[in-house]
Design a protein around this nucleic acid. Sequence first.
RNA 1: UCCUCAGUAGCUCAGCUGGUUAGAGCAUCUGACUGUUAAUCAGAGGGUCGUUGGUUCGAGUCCAACCUGAGGAGCCA
Length: 477
Amino acid sequence: MKRTKIKFALADATIGEKILIKGWVRTFRNNQFIAINDGSTINNIQAVVDFESTDENVIKNINTGACLSIEGTLVESQGKGQRVEVVADKVEILGVCDPEVYPLQPKKHSLEFLREKAHIRVRTNTFSAVYRVRHAMTFAVHEFFNKKGFVNVHTPIITGSDAEGAGEMFRVTTLDPTQPPLDAAGSVDYKADFFEKETNLTVSGQLEGETAALALSEIYTFGPTFRAENSNTTRHLAEFWMIEPEMAFYDLQDNMDLAQEFLRYLIQYALDNCQEDLAFLNQRLLDEEKNKPQAERSEMSLLEKLQFVLDNDFERVAYTEAIQILRNSKPNKKKKFKYLIDEWGADLQSEHERFLVEKHFKKPVILYNYPKTIKAFYMRANDDDKTVGAMDVLFPGIGEIIGGSQREERLDVLKEKIAAMGIDEKEVWWYLETRSFGTAPHSGFGLGFERMIQFVTGMGNIRDVIPFPRTPGNAEF
RNA sequence: UCCUCAGUAGCUCAGCUGGUUAGAGCAUCUGACUGUUAAUCAGAGGGUCGUUGGUUCGAGUCCAACCUGAGGAGCCA
């Protein structure tokens, strides 16, 4: 007999039908009722065994975590918690699970505990829901861009340019770390290394993405990204996934339009396709909030928050305007901010971003036209000579979820900026050539995929939305 | 990296201003139970109180350093 996935057994199978299900035991009650889950849905199916006619050895091995194969008849349930159930004819233990040592129990575990059992945590409701939502979001990303005619480009993971300025990089080498070859000056001789030069893991596919956009018009990348920053926060990983669209002929406004449309598409897709998982995650958050003091509870539930983003346009605020709002804000006047805003040019701290998003506008905010002094070399200089065409999309609770800009397409301006930032032109010769050979106005942005998953699932810690998180001091599994 | 908080049974946590033998719920084990829903009921086992050092007649409790984790900050997506 062919196996039926539990998702389909619960939804589509007809009463009286003989079916075969396989999955892992969540609980076994009353020597009689097995709750089984195979990950196809958040819901378990209940199998009923007749314990008098079932082998004692089999009954003894129906423990939480064990893997079972059950053949039986789908019937309407006499109990209240479920519509249908399987009356088992044959129960086979595919994999035993010793309850003395199995870490999961039919109870709530802390996320911190489960993080240390990352190989097992996907067997919980919360993590299997997160994994499924993450998959749906991956699919939706490709669907969105595919529908729009964007070309997916695989940019390199090992990169030879270290000029991106997006942070500390992980070195890639095959040299012996204890005895590296040295050059005449006594430093490590990378000419002797595998690529005959210094190489690192990518911190962004943007520069390579731009070269593709200046031929295919609209492209996007979706791949792993690595930052060797010593960041210990709920929203940073050393290895994360980033989506970077890059579009020829888009100005900053077009870029913002696309960012908003894209984020909304993903959220709508989740609401349309992950209803049960989102309902569970929504409830999980509500339960969690019950333990918090009234003041710390959020005004909206997860589902309300997602709907809210769909219903309200993102507020677009120029940096200069944001500074004015902040300067005149209550927390600034009452000196409640740790970093007080007094003059134009200051970088915004997360307390300021949070004020704008969570208190002042109370919706997603796109900040744009930042001072050139605090932004990267490739961002397009505005006519005022003070600002660049940068934009950050800020989400409540997450902070910066997207960072992007219109790119500097004018060769002379770009060369000036590169010189000003102390970058060697030779390092980015190929990037500069794109500005010589038929340059075009273009824009792009980077979306932190895990941060998006955090927002959609309501998970507070980024380490809980990627299967095996890599953070400083942690690369287990 | 900086700041704050935490580390007590397998898990979640209680343990007051230092004072006999360190507690609870859940889990586990044993027994009961054929309509349960994190099943229920009865009983049992389970601890180098993160580590090291110090103060004290006496330390889970006080002090110091270190380790681990969490939250916040910075860096950013």
